[in-house]
Amino acid sequence: MSEQIKSQFISALEFRHACKEFDSERKISPSDFDFILQSMRLAPSSFGLEPWQFVVIQDMTLREKIKEHAWGGQNQIPTASHFVVAMHNKGAGLRYDGPLFDEYLFKRRELPPEMEEKYRGFVEQFQENDFDLLQSQRNLDDWAGKQIYIPLAHMLIAAAMLKIDSCPMEGFNRVEVGKLLADELAIDAEVYSPAFLIAFGYRKNQQPNKLRRSLDSLVKWA
């Protein structure tokens, strides 16, 4: 059984590619897309903060507005079955004394006051010294921005397991897309910043074989 699972997993990774155009006539079933979203929900994050928000945009008018600021998604955005904007939390909310830690680390775990104080001090040490996150908002933003790529990987692999194509994209203007979502969907641009776009659907064209470096060139044993 384990060999079969490994084979299925590698096969899914071989199948996955950055799809440049989707078959607009084919739609992902609600059940399959829920599976993809559930894989995102179960992704790990530093200290369990889950510093992200995923916005599924099916309104084609809004997609067209986003497309105006997304040079990297001209074919994917209008043809995708499902289109997602991934947003990460920003700045002060990510601090050891900020709202995310209060809500997701302390309240959710119902830590007693003495444990909360001890843990908060540990996180402060991590942010202040170990990772140098408190020097600027940019440092905190980058920290959250790196974490949001973990649920992205979950979603891409989950889709590939179902033979659903995908394309993560960074080719867009973050500020303009952030303003657009604030205006159209009342998403607080002071709290969230777009990290990347993801299109899901079924490929229109056949894809070439995957090219990757050899394992020996990527891994060093010590």
Score class of each variant (00 low, 15 high):
Ser2Ile: 02
Glu3Ala: 09
Ile5Met: 08
Lys6Gly: 04
Phe9Thr: 09
Phe9Glu: 01
Phe9Leu: 10
Ile10Asp: 08
Leu13Asn: 11
Leu13Lys: 10
Glu21Pro: 01
Phe22Cys: 05
Asp23Pro: 06
Ser24His: 07
Ser24Arg: 07
Lys27Asn: 10
Lys27Gln: 12
Lys27Phe: 04
Ser29Ala: 05
Pro30His: 07
Asp32Phe: 00
Asp32Glu: 11
Phe33Asn: 03
Asp34Met: 05
Ile36Ser: 02
Ser39Lys: 02
Met40Ala: 15
Arg41Glu: 05
Ala43Trp: 07
Ser45Val: 12
Ser45Thr: 12
Glu50Ile: 03
Pro51Gly: 09
Pro51Gln: 08
Pro51Ser: 11
Trp52Tyr: 04
Gln53Tyr: 04
Phe54Ser: 03
Val55Ala: 01
Gln58Gly: 07
Met60Leu: 00
Lys65Tyr: 00
Lys67His: 02
Ala70Glu: 06
Gln74Asn: 12
Gln74Trp: 05
Ile77Asp: 02
Ile77Pro: 02
Ala80Pro: 02
Ser81Asn: 01
His82Ile: 05
His82Trp: 02
Val84Ile: 03
Val85Tyr: 00
His88Arg: 10
Gly91Lys: 09
Ala92Val: 08
Ala92His: 03
Ala92Glu: 11
Arg95Asn: 05
Tyr96Val: 05
Asp97Cys: 03
Gly98Asn: 04
Pro99Asn: 09
Leu100Cys: 03
Leu100Asp: 01
Leu100Tyr: 06
Glu103Gly: 01
Tyr104Trp: 01
Phe106Ala: 05
Phe106Leu: 06
Phe106Thr: 10
Lys107Val: 10
Glu110Gly: 10
Glu110Trp: 13
Leu111Cys: 06
Leu111Val: 06
Leu111Gln: 02
Pro112Val: 07
Lys118Pro: 09
Arg120Ile: 14
Phe122Arg: 15
Phe122Lys: 15
Glu124Val: 12
Glu124Asp: 13
Gln125Arg: 15
Gln127Glu: 11
Gln127Tyr: 13
Glu128Tyr: 13
Asp130Trp: 07
Asp130Ile: 12
Phe131Arg: 14
Asp132Val: 11
Leu133Asn: 06
Leu134Thr: 10
Gln135Ser: 14
Gln135Thr: 12
Gln135Glu: 13
Gln135Met: 06
Ser136Gln: 04
Gln137Cys: 02
Gln137Phe: 04
Arg138Tyr: 12
Asn139Ala: 13
Leu140Asn: 04
Trp143Asn: 03
Tyr149Cys: 10
Ile150His: 08
Leu152Ala: 11
Leu156Pro: 05
Ile157Thr: 14
Ala158Arg: 02
Ala159Cys: 14
Leu162Glu: 12
Lys163Thr: 15
Lys163Ala: 15
Ser166Asp: 14
Cys167Met: 10
Pro168Thr: 14
Glu170Ile: 13
Gly171His: 11
Phe172Gly: 10
Glu176Gln: 15
Lys179Phe: 12
Lys179Ala: 11
Lys179Arg: 15
Leu181Val: 06
Asp183Gly: 03
Asp183Pro: 00
Glu184Thr: 12
Glu184Cys: 04
Asp188Asn: 13
Asp188Tyr: 01
Ala189Glu: 08
Glu190Trp: 00
Val191Met: 04
Tyr192Lys: 02
Pro194Phe: 00
Ala199Cys: 09
Phe200Lys: 04
Lys204Tyr: 00
Asn205Tyr: 15
Gln206Ala: 14
Gln207Thr: 14
Pro208Thr: 11
Lys210Met: 07
Lys210Gln: 10
Arg212Glu: 11
Arg212Asp: 12
Leu215Lys: 14
Trp221Asn: 09
Ala222Glu: 13
